[in-house]
Design a protein around this nucleic acid. Structure first.
Length: 510
RNA sequence: GGGCGCGUAGCUCAAUUGGCAGAGCAGCGGCCUUUUAAGCCGCGGGUUUAGGGUUCGAUUCCCUACGCGCUCACCA
């Protein structure tokens, strides 16, 4: 059947074709595909017809820099993104991984067969093509390629989103991220930024003597954070396993083993609510450094973010959510007690029990969950009154011991631990301790936590006896740190939702 | 899980008080050899997320389901 015989209006009363409902535009493209194949042309070539000489960006640069001889041909590949057909000549843009470049196709030059039968009749927006031709500058000054030869190298069967507006529908953008990426260059840029952030982090840590390691994702006992886990099962061992919620307890074992500086970048899984800053799986960086404490970690965090900003070609000032943020060290350091006192007038040290603190909170119009522990109350006070205001980089230091079971207590205050979290743009970015390395205290803290949780009618979680055993072999004084790569990307890419910085964010099955 | 909002053509969006479901892009046919959101002429394309209800009549009002967003809760 010739394409000219095909009348899309007559045959599109939606019927299953290969079990797929096709719309008019999809049918037209399949018809073209069939005709190409019938005439002996492979719409999905195995090899390029010519050797690719340049990326689009390289061709433009080579021409602009005068590095191409007068009649020198370039061979380019790319996806056809726009077309302007003016009778016997056409302009179009093709896009490869480097850039978009205009091509100029003239019937006089490429011949009638290529121009009328292939280019005009068979090639659609979205198709991958290869062109060979010479570079020139148009009347309006755009560096372009005048095509001498042209080939279709991969056919696209679905129409592309609007060439001007791109793809906007949020649900479709996430469910079909490939369409989002091909239609929206700014989205592609976000994930380039993300990769560069990870590169900068690795470089910084590698340059500072840290060893990158990999620890188990499947863990028989989970720990290192308070989240609920995902559970899975090993068939042969007939054993339930948990997807890790943190790397902490395994990385510390490595400090016991004698590595002084280790880090891991990988996925954590937490079976909790989904929000603009929470995805069930997210990427975490944790590092542990022997012979330092949380003050040393703070200095490194300042250095690390400066290194990331530099890798991204930024100065120390970035914009997030409309706020100018100055990353230049030193960042503000303030204790949690002072930060809460500053924001609310409440000094929680003056309220040594939960009931008294809850009373003080109610006095300022805060309605805490009944039955909350003192640590939870402090956390709630902080989250409501302090956290949203922490736009400039800030270290909040010295947390209540009840909510920090893995951190070392302050020498002069057993109710408080050497811990900090850092905040930028109102987002909690990371968490660090002077690590608890006293195995007796560690066991006591675990037991306390277990009993508290058991009281809240949750499943009782066994102690990680092997971790405690490792501490009993001696862990050096250590400073440890964890930070979310996703949230760092949100910050540097100026994105307000974690889903915008995760390629395939979790959605309910449609 | 609770509350609020949204779901219209392949894409981006309209549709007045409940009264013929539209536009631009994309597609198809035609004209057009420096355009760039090309232009001009013509044509086709809809189970208005799904199911039910009210009504002479439902994209519009009501109920249910599904999905998404915001928010609250949860997340030491």
């Amino acid at each position: 059947m010739r394409i000219g015989d095909y009348n899309p209006q007559s045959s599109i009363k939606r019927g299953p074709v290969d079990d797929i409902d096709l719309n008019e535009q999809q049918l037209v493209r399949r018809q073209k595909l069939a005709e190409l194949q019938a005439s002996g042309n492979d719409p999905y070539v195995r090899r390029l017809p010519w050797e690719r000489t340049h990326t689009a960006a390289a061709a433009i640069a080579a021409y602009t820099d005068g590095k191409l001889a007068a009649d020198q041909q370039v061979a380019l590949v790319g996806r056809l993104m726009t077309v302007r057909i003016m009778g016997k000549a056409s302009f179009a843009h093709i896009e490869d991984g480097s850039a978009r470049i205009q091509i100029y196709v003239k019937r006089d030059v490429v011949g009638e067969a290529l121009y009328d039968e292939l280019f005009k009749k068979m090639i659609d927006l979205g198709d991958f093509v290869m062109v060979r031709g010479t570079m020139f500058t148009t009347r309006t000054g755009e560096v372009s390629c005048e095509v001498r030869e042209l080939a279709l190298i991969s056919k696209t069967l679905n129409p592309l989103p609007d060439k001007w507006h791109g793809l906007r529908d949020i649900e479709t953008r996430y469910r079909q991220r490939y369409v989002d990426l091909l239609a929206n260059p700014d989205v592609r840029q976000i994930f380039i930024t993300r990769a560069r952030i990870v590169t900068a982090i690795r470089r910084y840590l590698d340059d500072n003597g840290f060893l990158e390691v990999e620890t188990p994702v499947l863990q028989p006992i989970y720990g290192g954070a308070a989240a609920r886990p995902f559970v899975t099962h090993h068939n042969q061992l007939d054993q339930d396993l948990f997807l890790r919620i943190s790397f902490e307890l395994y990385l510390k074992r490595l400090l016991v083993g004698g590595y002084e500086r280790v880090y891991e970048i990988g996925r954590d899984f937490r079976n909790e609510g989904i929000s603009f800053k929470h995805n069930p799986e997210f990427t975490q960086l944790e590092w542990y450094e022997a012979y330092t404490d949380y003050n040393g970690v703070m200095r490194r965090v300042e250095e690390l973010l400066a290194a990331v900003a530099q890798e991204l070609g930024r100065g120390t000032t970035i914009t997030y959510n409309g706020n100018a943020i100055d990353l230049a060290p030193p960042w503000r350091r303030i204790t949690m007690r002072d930060a809460i006192r500053e924001a609310t007038g409440i000094d929680y040290q003056a309220h040594p029990d939960a009931a008294s603190l809850a009373e003080a909170m109610r006095a300022i119009g805060h309605h805490p969950e009944p039955g909350s522990s003192r640590g939870k109350l402090i956390d709630s006070l902080f989250g409501t009154h302090v956290e949203p205001k922490l736009i400039q980089p800030t270290f909040i230091t010295d947390y209540p011991v009840e909510i920090s079971p893995l951190a070392k207590k302050k020498a002069d205050d057993p109710t408080t631990v050497e811990r900090f979290e850092y905040f930028i743009g109102g987002l909690e970015m990371g968490n660090a301790f002077t690590e608890l390395n006293d195995p007796i205290d560690q066991r006591a803290r675990f037991v306390e936590l277990r009993d508290a949780v058991a009281g809240a009618d949750e499943n009782v979680h066994p102690l990680d006896e092997d971790f405690l055993n490792s501490l009993s072999f001696g862990m050096p004084p250590t400073g440890g740190f964890g930070t979310g790569i996703d949230r760092l990307t949100m910050l540097f890419a100026d994105q307000q939702s974690i889903r915008e910085v995760i390629l395939f964010p979790h959605l309910r099955t449609a």
